[in-house]
Nucleic acid binder design. Structure first.
Length: 781
RNA sequence: GUCCCCGUAGUCCAAUCGGCAGAGACACCCGGCUUAAACCCGGCACAGUGUGGGUUCAAAUCCCACCGGGGACACCA
């Protein structure tokens, strides 16, 4: 049972309260069921908030981080989280991050980590590069600032090599992860099938390849578009009469923000480059444009435009008065409607493809292209390689030395960890270059290969590296010889139940899945998916919106605990609704929880029978209620419906209260059985109250180690059940029948009922539906 | 714009396979306890399942459309 580990920014808030209450219920339940449960915790301790706080308050980021961790740790202990405190890890500790470096070098050796000079996402506020996954709608995921493009040499991890496996292994997660998360991951990877098609450009030696999912429409390609910000566009424009116009356009494109670019309904713009491409299937000369609606970093950065059957191409064709050729038959004519047709018609005006459907035409066209050597089938992905370099201080140093002679040299394993230099004398403020670059004593080293003068890589790793494998480290968190002992990981992992917010649906979960697959290929783990089951708990809202410092609607856990107590808060969180739903704090009633806890606790004091009293001698009705509660409790915990679990315990408390006051009385052994059951079931949610009850009942501590009660199946069988007798769907009579009554017996019984006989007088029966033992429906003509 | 999820008492939420709409709680109201109140104990009451169709002996549950709320993606060729 693993909770997503926290980031140590300030004290815990109500969001943590919900997540950890849920995780703790699961962990405590399985302990009571007799399982050996690993319920670890650690801190995701590297990252920008610490660094920014350090700059602002002029303290060491480590000092700030560890102070916050201590505060959170104290709150967690108070909150009664059953964490294994011997296995705690902090990702900012060299004993942890040295294994980030080790993994990185292993990947470097395998060609999975590489350095590349290219246009990258640059956050103007954080002054660092960002991974694709960290750019949300053109803004920095962390600070919501504008993201621009910048050309830099950066380190990447080859996650695209794993795209197919990341998709295909999702089959294992079907039904165990939220459907929504699986869908988001699929969309993010964005695999599509199509073809590469080679177009000769007049006056250029090399043909240019385009990617298309609709090679069948190649006869309808009437123009050609290259991404304005691609190298190809600049090259094609250079030396043409259009060069000046192109440069002006490019400047405009660069100046427009990512936000503008994403705006929907935006008019298509572009520049004719005064050059022509040759359509490989019909030899037609088609004009080449540069435009910003084609993305430089998807596919090949160039497209064949088929305006009749692609809306974007059609919009562009209409704006630039370009011809539109229909090659898929349809009732509507895109030239008139302005709407591109994408339905499954029959191919026309397409030479050898005429008369074929889309499904037939695509493979046929690929054959034609392959015969002529001008194209081939292709798979394309939206997923890009994971850029992990960051130009900030508070992260894992990249263990590479740059030597003039030897190039990129891995730091030898016996020199790991490459520790961060002291912040003393360093200026951490964001300035576009890693602060590590100014730690001269640290940067200048002898090349470990040739001994010559060399420089350390001054970037640090994305903190998502830290969280991509921490759950593996829990199995062996003190290991100083290796990231972990594979045998220990095999013993505990994969994580049976992972709990955390849906905000990590893509980033963290995708990276962790990738990392585990790499570890699998390295022979370190014997599984390919890190988290067997995933629960995304909802958010805790205040007055309809997410709690945040800026809104000023933050509810601090510490204060709530002082007012209401730990158990009441845990209970309120769990009882407020299904765990995946958002909770509005305004609708939560800790006082109601307190009332219930007091009510449950009072039961323990009322029991007068001795410890060990034989319940089989007790009141059968109460025993049935008890065992039904146990059974339902199991079902509800195991299907993660903790709110219903609580309702069942409340039900049992009510039944017991009644039994004591007006039923069998407090001395009945069934009362003891019921109250002990309440204590044990309640202990997963409210451990303090349950412990008090356990002691009042005369038991030795601790209820957390008591066994979950065993259900007596004979007590689950009802003596009789109510059968509803309907005529034409309306209830006319109710019968008390044995639960194992036969269909025929029940029908006979129903037909013999005086009410039914009366109601059927003068009626003709068409059919009788019998569902023993619950229902009989008599249908009339 | 496309896709996905959700609409059940005043409120939060339950309801194995389609089979008596109500488990639990909040709030309200009424009794009991109390000099009185709080606490506590007990009880009453409250919806026919967003709307309109369809399938079925039978629909909160399955299908279609619409309305309302939430979310994801958004020039991915």
């Amino acid at each position: 049972m693993c909770d997503m580990f926290p980031y140590p920014s300030g004290d815990l808030h109500m969001g943590h309260a919900e997540a950890y209450a849920i995780g703790d219920v699961i962990a405590r339940y399985w302990v009571l069921k007799g399982f050996n449960v690993l319920h670890p915790i650690g801190w995701d301790a590297f990252g920008l908030p610490a660094e920014n706080a350090a700059i602002k308050n002029n303290v060491d980021p480590g000092t700030w981080t560890y102070a916050n961790i201590e505060q959170q740790k104290a709150s967690m202990r108070n909150y009664a989280c059953s964490f294994d405190w011997d296995r705690v890890l902090y990702t900012c500790d060299p004993t942890y991050y040295r294994w980030n470096q080790w993994f990185f070098l292993e990947m470097f050796k395998r060609g999975l980590a590489y350095r590349k000079y290219s246009a990258v996402n640059w956050c103007t506020q954080c002054q660092t590069v960002l991974a694709n996954e960290q750019v949300v709608a053109g803004l920095c995921e962390r600070c919501d600032s504008q993201v621009t493009k910048k050309k830099l040499a950066q380190w990447y991890l080859r996650i695209t090599d794993y795209a197919d496996r990341l998709l295909e292994d999702m089959d294992q997660l079907e039904g165990k992860w939220p459907e929504k998360v699986l869908l988001m991951q699929r969309n993010w990877i964005g695999r599509s099938q199509g073809a590469h098609v080679q177009f000769v450009i007049e006056g250029r030696e090399e043909p240019v390849s385009v990617y298309t999912t609709r090679p069948d429409t190649l006869f309808g390609a009437t123009f050609f578009v290259v991404a304005a910000d691609s190298d190809l566009a600049a090259e094609l424009a250079s030396g043409t009469p259009a060069e000046a116009e192109f440069n002006a356009y490019l400047d405009k494109v660069k100046a427009s923000s990512e936000m503008d670019r994403l705006e929907s309904g935006r008019e298509k713009t572009g520049v004719f480059l005064e050059r022509y491409a040759i359509n490989p299937v019909n030899g037609e000369k088609i004009p080449v444009y540069a435009a910003d609606y084609v993305l430089a970093d998807y596919g090949t950065g160039a497209i064949m435009a088929v305006p009749a059957h692609d809306q974007r191409d059609l919009d562009f064709a209409r704006a630039f008065k370009l011809p539109v050729t229909v090659v898929v038959d349809s009732d509507e004519d895109p030239r008139e409607t302005g709407i591109a047709t994408t339905d499954n018609g029959v191919l026309v005006n397409s030479g050898p493809l005429d008369g074929l459907t889309k499904a037939e035409a695509i493979p046929r066209m690929i054959e034609v292209l392959e015969e002529r050597g001008t194209g081939s089938a292709a798979t394309n992905y939206r997923l890009r390689d994971w850029l992990i370099s960051r130009q900030r201080y508070w992260g894992t140093p990249i263990p590479i030395i740059h030597c003039e002679k030897c190039g990129e040299v891995a730091v030898p394993e016996d020199q790991l960890p490459v520790e961060l230099p002291s912040t003393e004398g360093l200026d951490l403020s964001p300035k576009g270059v890693s602060p590590l670059a100014t730690a001269h004593d640290w940067v200048n080293v002898a090349c470990s290969n040739c001994g010559g003068p060399a420089l350390r890589d001054t970037d640090t790793m994305d903190t998502f590296v830290d969280s991509s494998w921490y759950f593996l480290r829990y199995a062996d968190s003190q290991n100083s010889e290796a990231a972990f002992d594979p045998k220990k990981v095999a013993e505990w992992l994969p994580v049976d139940q992972y709990v955390g917010g849906v905000t990590h649906a893509i980033l963290h979960l995708l990276y962790a899945r990738f990392w585990v697959k790499v570890a699998h290929d390295m022979g370190l783990v014997d599984f390919v998916e890190p988290f067997t089951r995933l629960l995304n708990q909802g958010m805790v809202l205040k007055d309809g919106s997410a709690m945040s410092k800026s809104r000023g609607n933050l509810v601090r856990l510490t204060e709530e605990l002082e007012i209401n107590g730990v158990d009441a808060i845990r209970l309120s969180m769990v009882f407020a609704g299904p765990p995946e739903d958002d909770i509005d704090w305004a609708e939560v009633s800790p006082s109601g929880s307190k009332k219930f806890l007091a009510r449950a606790w009072r039961l323990a004091g009322d029991v007068t029978s001795e410890v060990g009293a034989d319940p089989t001698q007790g009141d059968q009705q109460l025993r049935k209620a008890t065992h039904k509660a146990i059974r339902d409790g199991e079902l509800n915990v195991e299907s993660l419906r903790f709110n219903v679990l609580v309702a069942r315990v409340m039900e049992l408390v009510n039944a017991t209260r009644k039994a004591i006051d007006t039923g069998c009385g407090p001395a009945d052994p069934a009362v003891r059985e019921a109250v002990e059951t309440v204590a044990i079931m309640l202990s997963v949610v409210c451990p303090y109250t349950a412990e008090e009850m356990w002691m009042l009942l005369g038991h030795e501590p601790t209820v957390a180690r008591a066994a979950w009660p065993t259900v007596d199946p004979s007590l689950l069988v009802e003596d009789s059940v109510t059968c509803v007798v309907q005529i034409a769907g309306k209830i006319r009579d109710k019968l008390q029948v044995s639960p194992d009554i036969s269909q025929a017996e029940l029908e006979a019984l129903a037909m013999a009922s005086t009410e039914i006989i009366d109601a059927l007088t003068g009626q003709e029966i068409r059919m009788v539906v019998v569902r023993a033992p619950k229902l009989v429906n008599i249908v009339l003509k």
